[in-house]
Amino acid sequence: MKFLRKLLVFILIVIVFGGAAIWIIYYFKNIEKKELTYELRKNTNGSYAELEKGFTHYELDGPDSGKVVVLLNGFSVPYYIWNGTYEYLTSHGFRVLRYDMYGRGFSDRPNVTYNKQLYFEQLNELIDQLHLKQPFNIAGVSFGGLMAADYTAAYPEKVNKVVLIDPAYNFDHPSTPELAENFLEALDPEKRALSQMEDFKYPDKHPNWVEQYRPQMEYKGFRHALVSTRYDYGSDNNKIYTALNNAHKQVLLIWGKDDKTVSFTYSKDIQQVLKTEFLPVDDAAHLPHLEQPDVVNPALVTFLKK
C-alpha cells in the first residue's frame, strides 16, 4: 500500500509540474496579447461594419452603377491578398467589395465555432448593411474559393458569376486533437508566418509579404479562428463542386501551374464534376493573380463583363 501511495503521489507531482511547465511554455510562446480596439481601428485603412458577431473590416469602391464583385480572401491572409486585382476591377467599372473574414486582419475574432454558417452570415449581413445589388459576382482565392463554391450552392439566388482561383481542395479535418493543434500553433507562430512565402513561385519578388502578415497574429482569437475553421468548416470535394455545378452558374476556374499549396492536378478533379471556363496560368504558384496580374486581371474583366 505504501508503495502505491508513493507512486500516486509521484504521478500527481509529475502531472502538476508537467501541467505548470506546459502553461509556462504556452504563456511565453503565445504572441496573442493585444485586443482590437476603436483607437487602433481608426488609424487603419478601410471601413468597419458592426455585424451580429462583431466588427468587419472592409473596403468598397467603384461606381454605384457598376456590377458588384465580392472578393473572398484566403485561409489566413486578410483582404490585402487582393491588392492589385481590387484596384484593377474598380478601374474597369465594377463595384468591388473586399473584407476580412472573422478572425483575420482587423475584423473581430468572436469566440465561436468557425463553421460555414458563421462565414455565410457574415457575408449576408455585410451585403445587406451596405445595400449592394443582388445577384452579385463572387470571386475567391484558396479557402475563399472553397467558400465561394459553398456559398453559391447555398444561396444561388444571390450570386451571378463565380470565379475560383486555386481553390482549397481536400480541406480535411486534422487528425490531431483540436486542443493539441491550438497548442502547437501557439508554440511556433513564426512557422505560419514564414510559410506564407510558399504560396509564391518567386517569393523574392514579394519581400514584405511576411511583414505585412505578422501584425494580425498578435490579436487575441486569430489562432482559434484558424484552428476552428480547419476542424469545424467541413468540406466534401465532390459534394461541393457537384452542388455548384447544379446551381448552373457561369464559373471561371483559374490555377497557377506551379502551385505547391493546392496542387494543379486538382484542377482536373474539379472539372470532372463542375463545368467551367478554365485558365491555367504559366509561371505562377498559388496566387496567380499576384504573380501574373497581366494575365489574370484582364481575364477576370472579360469573364465578368460577358
Results as ranks from 00 to 15, higher is better:
residue 140 G to K: 04
residue 147 M to A: 06
residue 100 D to M: 01
residue 197 M to I: 08
residue 17 F to I: 15
residue 247 A to W: 06
residue 43 N to A: 11
residue 1 M to D: 12
residue 269 D to V: 02
residue 188 D to K: 12
residue 81 I to G: 01
residue 251 V to E: 03
residue 142 S to G: 14
residue 66 G to I: 11
residue 205 K to V: 03
residue 47 S to F: 14
residue 187 L to A: 10
residue 7 L to P: 02
residue 179 L to C: 00
residue 152 T to Y: 05
residue 30 N to V: 01
residue 89 L to H: 08
residue 249 K to G: 10
residue 179 L to Y: 00
residue 62 G to Q: 05
residue 143 F to D: 08
residue 168 A to H: 08
residue 300 L to T: 12
residue 277 E to D: 14
residue 135 P to H: 04
residue 184 L to E: 09
residue 73 N to M: 14
residue 209 W to F: 14
residue 207 P to D: 05
residue 237 N to F: 06
residue 72 L to M: 14
residue 192 R to M: 10
residue 109 R to G: 10
residue 281 V to S: 09
residue 296 V to H: 06
residue 149 A to R: 00
residue 169 Y to P: 06
residue 81 I to F: 00
residue 124 N to I: 01
residue 118 L to A: 00
residue 144 G to Q: 05
residue 73 N to G: 13
residue 238 N to E: 15
residue 228 S to G: 11
residue 95 R to I: 02
residue 52 E to Y: 07
residue 217 M to E: 13
residue 224 H to V: 04
residue 80 Y to D: 10
residue 278 F to Q: 04
residue 7 L to V: 07
residue 75 F to R: 11
residue 34 K to E: 15
residue 261 T to V: 15
residue 117 Q to G: 02
residue 230 R to L: 15
residue 281 V to N: 05
residue 18 G to D: 10
residue 81 I to Y: 00
residue 102 Y to Q: 06
residue 251 V to D: 03
residue 131 H to N: 15
residue 79 Y to K: 13
residue 39 E to L: 10
residue 152 T to I: 04
residue 178 E to Q: 14
residue 8 L to I: 15
residue 61 D to F: 05
residue 173 H to V: 14
residue 52 E to F: 10
residue 62 G to R: 02
residue 14 V to T: 07
residue 208 N to F: 13
residue 24 I to E: 11
residue 256 G to N: 03
residue 173 H to P: 05
residue 281 V to K: 10
residue 232 D to M: 07
residue 165 I to F: 01
residue 179 L to F: 05
residue 291 E to R: 09
residue 166 D to V: 05
residue 297 N to Y: 09
residue 186 A to R: 11
residue 217 M to A: 12
residue 229 T to M: 13
residue 25 I to W: 09
residue 57 H to P: 09
residue 150 D to L: 00
residue 87 E to M: 04
residue 221 G to A: 07
residue 9 V to A: 13
residue 150 D to N: 05
residue 39 E to Y: 11
residue 293 P to K: 06
residue 18 G to V: 11
residue 23 W to N: 10
residue 44 T to C: 01
residue 256 G to E: 03
residue 92 H to K: 12
residue 306 K to Q: 15
residue 78 P to M: 01
residue 13 I to Y: 04
residue 144 G to R: 05
residue 36 L to T: 07
residue 101 M to Y: 13
residue 146 L to N: 03
residue 290 L to C: 07
residue 82 W to G: 05
residue 35 E to Y: 12
residue 134 Q to L: 13
residue 211 E to K: 15
residue 250 Q to G: 02
residue 296 V to D: 07
residue 186 A to F: 12
residue 252 L to K: 08
residue 55 F to Q: 10
